[in-house]
Simulated scan of single mutants.
Amino acid sequence: MKTSDLDILIAPGLGGGSSSHWYTRWEQKLSTARRIEQSDWHEPNFDNWVARITEHASSTDRPIVLVGHSLGALSIVHAAPLLADKGIRAAFLVAPPSQRVLLTMPEVDPRFAHVPTAPLPFPSVLVASRDDPYATYEESEAMALDWGSAISDAGNAGHINDESGHGPWPEGLMRFAGFLKTL
């Protein structure tokens, strides 16, 4: 698939990201991409975050590919059972946090820490870093296995965000384009 043939819904993580974050740049660069806005980026409420994903997915008649980073990626996975009839073609999940880490984050609704283990109802790829402070590579592999996601090894890339030097992240955009070609 080409990006012009679908709607790309981007689910940012905790904090909502900066203007230089890779997913903000993708949103600006890809004409069919739009951000899933949340009412509170700093103290995420489980019900609200999942509902916003399903609301955005319900607002289009075109095929959808979901892109999520960190808690946004995990929110997509939590929302997956509610998305079966929403035209979701695939999900590109970048650096989801592990249950171990989520349990130490008091600002995050504890229901996020109940990481789903059921396979996703659509194709997906999980991009994982070998030195992500929010999930070990082994934890990421286990999540990918549970969800039926292909794993994409980003090497030593930290949390794949501004702090780890991934402003524009052209390698990620190439991985995303390659993933779209498989759909």
Results as ranks from 00 to 15, higher is better:
2 K>W: 13
4 S>A: 15
8 I>R: 04
11 A>T: 06
12 P>A: 04
12 P>V: 07
13 G>S: 02
13 G>Q: 02
17 G>K: 09
17 G>I: 08
17 G>M: 10
18 S>F: 03
19 S>G: 13
22 W>N: 10
24 T>H: 10
24 T>S: 14
25 R>V: 15
26 W>F: 12
27 E>T: 12
29 K>F: 08
30 L>K: 02
31 S>H: 09
31 S>V: 11
32 T>V: 06
33 A>G: 07
34 R>F: 06
35 R>T: 15
35 R>A: 10
36 I>Q: 00
36 I>Y: 01
38 Q>P: 05
40 D>H: 11
41 W>F: 06
42 H>R: 07
45 N>T: 07
49 W>I: 09
49 W>K: 08
55 E>P: 00
56 H>D: 13
63 P>M: 10
63 P>D: 13
64 I>M: 06
65 V>L: 11
65 V>I: 13
65 V>W: 03
69 H>R: 03
72 G>N: 04
73 A>S: 12
74 L>H: 05
75 S>E: 01
76 I>W: 03
77 V>S: 05
82 L>P: 00
91 A>Y: 10
92 F>M: 13
92 F>E: 10
101 V>I: 15
102 L>G: 08
103 L>P: 02
105 M>Q: 12
105 M>D: 03
106 P>L: 10
109 D>S: 08
109 D>Q: 10
110 P>T: 11
112 F>T: 04
113 A>V: 13
116 P>Y: 06
116 P>I: 07
117 T>C: 12
119 P>S: 14
120 L>R: 09
123 P>K: 11
127 V>T: 07
127 V>F: 02
127 V>G: 01
128 A>V: 00
130 R>C: 01
136 T>A: 02
138 E>T: 15
142 A>W: 07
143 M>E: 03
145 L>T: 15
145 L>A: 15
146 D>I: 00
149 S>T: 12
152 S>Q: 13
154 A>V: 05
155 G>E: 04
156 N>I: 01
159 H>A: 14
159 H>K: 02
161 N>G: 11
162 D>S: 07
167 G>W: 04
169 W>T: 05
170 P>I: 03
170 P>T: 04
174 M>W: 06
176 F>W: 11
176 F>Q: 06
179 F>T: 09
181 K>A: 15
182 T>P: 07
